[in-house]
Simulated scan of single mutants.
Amino acid sequence: MRVPFIKMHGLGNDFVVLDARETALPAMTAGKAKALADRHTGIGCDQLILLEPVSDQSDADFRMRIFNHDGGEVEACGNAARAVALYHGKPAKLATAGGIIALSPADGGARVDMGQPRFEWDAIPLEYAMDTSRIPVGWEQLQAPDAVNVGNPHVIFFVDDAGAVELERLGPLIELDPLFPERVNVNVAKVTDRAIDLRVWERGAGLTQACGTGACATAVAAIRRKLVASPVEVRLPGGALTIEWQPGGSITMTGPAQESFRGSFEWDDFG
């Protein structure tokens, strides 16, 4: 079976998009997703994105499923949402495992309503009950993070120099810590004048050029701490996003996305 794909990226966070809304594909497996994501023997990407139809009773226009580089399926991906908005070409409501989000193309990228953040310990989730602001835990110089769920779980450490943190070493230790039963995305952030410099270790993907949900979670945590005001620019290695949020409201993320190329592959050659 020959299957078309679209290679896209948002600020360097790259995706293989498979559109199964009109032509159904065989069931996606973790092994298949991991094989396609492999940068040496597959197409190569941080995340595989699968678009599928929804039932007539759904409030969404279609569904987005997200598989990380390791093949694990996850709840949300902000950069992928912008890429899908650009590909779809018009406003839509998108069903994800993390909830329904609204998106629309805008200025070479997209504006995405990511929904409301959650702060309850069991919504992150954490292993046991605690306040999710300034959690009393730490890993070497990374201490007292905030925890925020924006469709997927994040911890945010505010540091003096985000670039100096050995995130490739500390990221997996924190991601896999028993405190986080569903693993966690790890953010290290430095707040500057009305902006945030951010690096992210993504659960199941490792260090990426950009993480849309990480930018959202970090902006929310910084606003809660009154370190910045909305809107705020979040600067990642791949570029910048604008995040807007007021307590009690939804998060809005605006930023670029781009199509890289299109191709096709034989389904049975992978996984």
Rank of each mutant, 00 (worst) to 15 (best):
V137F: 13
E166L: 12
I174C: 00
L126P: 00
R134A: 12
A162H: 15
Y128H: 09
I174F: 01
E168Q: 14
R134I: 03
I174S: 00
V148N: 02
N152W: 13
P136M: 12
T132G: 07
V148F: 00
T132F: 11
A164F: 12
N152V: 09
V148T: 01
S133N: 13
V137D: 04
A129I: 04
A147R: 03
L126G: 02
G138S: 02
E127W: 03
A164D: 14
G138I: 04
P172F: 05
I135R: 07
D160S: 14
Q141S: 10
L170I: 03
P145Q: 08
V137W: 15
A164M: 15
M130Q: 12
V165H: 06
D146P: 02
A164H: 13
N152A: 13
E166T: 04
F157L: 02
Q141P: 08
D161G: 14
P153V: 09
A144Y: 12
V150N: 10
A144L: 09
A164I: 15
L167F: 04
G138Y: 05
D160W: 07
S133H: 15
G163R: 14
A162D: 15
Y128S: 13
G163I: 11
P136L: 07
E140W: 06
H154S: 02
V155K: 00
L176V: 13
D131V: 12
Y128A: 14
R169K: 11
S133C: 15
N152H: 14
G171T: 02
L167C: 10
S133V: 13
L173E: 03
E166K: 10
A164L: 13
W139P: 02
H154Q: 02
P125A: 03
D160G: 13
G138M: 02
P172T: 07
D146V: 00
W139T: 05
E175Y: 09
R169Y: 10
I135L: 08
W139Q: 06
F158V: 08
G171Y: 01
A129H: 06
Q141L: 11
P145R: 03
E140M: 06
P178K: 11
G163V: 08
G163E: 10
L176Y: 14
A129G: 05
W139M: 06
H154T: 03
F157Y: 03
A164K: 15
V148H: 01
P178I: 06
L173F: 01
A164P: 12
V155D: 08
L176I: 12
L176R: 15
L176F: 14
P136F: 06
N152F: 13
Q143M: 03
P136E: 07
G163S: 10
L176W: 15
D177C: 07
V159S: 07
E127I: 00
Q141H: 13
P136N: 06
D160V: 10
D146G: 02
P172S: 11
A162C: 15
